[in-house]
Amino acid sequence: MQIEWIWGLIGGLCIGCAAAAYLLVNGRIMGASGIVGGLVDGTAGGTWRERAGFVAALVAVPAVMAWAAGGAQTHVTGNVAVVIVAGGLVGLGTRMANGCTSGHGVCGISRLSLRGIVATVFYIVAGGLVMAVARHGLGII
């Protein structure tokens, strides 16, 4: 087994424990798009502090880890147009669907939620098709 897969499993267990703690202690679903979306579109109400605390730590911990490791790479594309279009699609899509990889994927599937399962199938299949067309057809990514 490759070492990346083991790190994937370890990191995944961390993510799952974070989601489990957020559910059992705070009583909320750990969905990144929902937490940050509520902060920017004004639907957070009295929950904005806990959302802001979550987001601040989510940014800060990898920042410290990357700094300690002497830098990290995201290998994000240099094509500004692709980045902006992709960001727009992710923002719009996750709010319309009410969830992303963490909310629908991790939290929804583990609850055997039909919506979570359907959403995950659609975004993975759509992602695979767009990847096939954009990388192997158009060659833009």
């Binding site: 279009v85 992709a86 699609l89 992710v90 923002g91 899509g93 669907a97 990889t101 959403a119 992602g127």
Partner: peptide
């Protein structure tokens, strides 16, 4: 929403 998200995720 999920289809749009998947497209952006891939890009």
């Amino acid at each position: 929403g999920s289809v749009l998200f998947g497209a952006g995720w891939a890009l």
